[in-house]
């Protein structure tokens, strides 16, 4: 599991506010949910970006110059498998998660 990115906010002054309000932009570690993970057969990938566009968590990135051209941020990937289903070349499959 990759470490979650944590970036400190630029040092603006904070003030008290009253009542219910969300003031932080955060991400839950939804990668923990996963019982299966997508595995890419990079050799068959056409870099068409379909998986990137359809990923509900927006954690897939196509890096055309890399050999491992489909980058998945496993901090958040829930293992839903939509990428495996939409891939026109069917080069992604779900395999059991091991931690």
């Amino acid at each position: 599991m990759e470490k979650q990115q944590e970036q400190p906010m630029k040092m603006l002054k904070k003030r008290n506010v009253l009542g219910p309000v969300a003031t932080d932009f955060t991400a839950a570690n939804t990668g923990n949910w996963r019982i299966e993970r997508p595995e890419v057969d990079y050799s068959r990938c056409s870099k068409c970006r379909t998986c990137e566009r359809y990923c509900p968590t927006n954690v897939i990135e196509i890096r055309p110059d890399d050999q491992e051209c489909v980058y998945i941020n496993f901090d958040y990937c829930k293992g839903c498998g939509i990428c495996t289903n939409v891939c026109p070349r069917q080069c992604i499959q779900l395999i059991p998660e091991v931690r």
Partner: peptide, 8 residues
């Protein structure tokens, strides 16, 4: 921006 009245 802030989000008002989310779940407490």
């Amino acid at each position: 921006p802030m989000f008002l009245c989310d779940l407490t």
